[in-house]
Design a protein around this nucleic acid. Sequence first.
DNA 1: TTGACGATCCTTACACCGTAAAGCTACAGT
DNA 2: ACTGTAGCTTTACGGTGTAAGGATCGTCAA
Lengths: 223, 223
Amino acid sequence: MTPARREAPLRRDDVVAAAIALVDAHGLRALSMRRLGEALGVEAMSLYTHVANKDDLLGAMVDAVFAKMSPAPAGTHWRAALTTVATSKRAVLRRHPWALPLLDSRRAPGHATLAHHDALLGCLRGAGFSVPATGHVYALLDSFVYGFALQEASLLLTDPDDSADLAREMLERLPADTYPHLVELVTAQAARSGHSFADEFAVGLELLLDACAGIHVRENGAS
Amino acid sequence: MTPARREAPLRRDDVVAAAIALVDAHGLRALSMRRLGEALGVEAMSLYTHVANKDDLLGAMVDAVFAKMSPAPAGTHWRAALTTVATSKRAVLRRHPWALPLLDSRRAPGHATLAHHDALLGCLRGAGFSVPATGHVYALLDSFVYGFALQEASLLLTDPDDSADLAREMLERLPADTYPHLVELVTAQAARSGHSFADEFAVGLELLLDACAGIHVRENGAS
DNA sequence: TTGACGATCCTTACACCGTAAAGCTACAGT
DNA sequence: ACTGTAGCTTTACGGTGTAAGGATCGTCAA
């Protein structure tokens, strides 16, 4: 059979975008070269023209996710900048939860990833944080964001928006006498209808930024 | 052929333990039912006597990892208890980095997991934290630990112990004019030979616990 | 105009994966 | 002695990533 001729040849970005769309819709497990090819109207092996192998594809997907995160806005107070970046990062990771497990199997970060990190570091250095302090703040903040996203992803498996329902359902499976404190916490949350685990993010972030402000004052005096 | 008769029948725990050993040694990708069977001197299908399917196995592995973490010690100051738990948790996750990506695809946590969480919550409630504050502290702390472990796992891919070597190697791939701040930070770390990214954990944890102490004082007054 | 070349896509093939289905064997309980 | 069942095996099926080797085109040099 004569090979199908597409109106425009496939680009690497098309492949990556289609893969992200597919995974967003149907989960990481649904991403196979054959299915991805099908979504693009192409045989599986054709994808290898644009992508070295599946791992390369996954790496590109992760980088594309990083590209979606707001970079540190220039010219704003460091605290506002950190808030912006952290919030955006969490939002993006929440929309693409599959990116998190991929994060730790990628050995060569892409340009968007590196640029994102660099911009935030630059923001901190510009704000007067010393190099070691910048390292501390960055490790602290990033850990929090990633870890929060990880927990959120774990919860989001069952419930998309309102954790209250999830909490109620969870209670049915938790023997109250075996895990009294867990039950207490979940009950209290479920009671406050509309409460979302996501709210914890803002609280935690504020606490974290307070801690960073402490470092900043120690190094630069009160502003 | 007559089925091989083992001296003692296989137990679920044996299967899980062997799977963990296999994955510790050769990575998650190396875990296939056939290989695991081989490691146990058994055909792949025999494993299904002890395990519902591969997902069930992975869940059991995660729970076994949780079981290795030190529970919150009773009768100590909450701050010491949190330090113990967080440190232990990180250490365990560092030894079994594959558990992290698995965390967020498991929908039914095992007993060890639930018990671990319950103990820590109990410790906080006992120390005088209100229910909402306990939620905040817990989300904050757990996010940090998971996120830190995630970043560490991502770095550990190439270098096991001393990040200084890793930093030096990384520098060779980073164009200094494209990512100036990234290069600055990595350079500074590489300069301090023997510096390990792992040191950031203690620093971050201290900052975090300070923030928690703030909450505690606000709720209970100075102790 | 011709002819070589490289990019894009296709077909075929292979080893490996998870697991459904069915059968074997040896012990436990009646 | 008969039956059930727990542990293990064999076989088989559809799916996976990807190596190898064409096929068809647009482009550019001769």
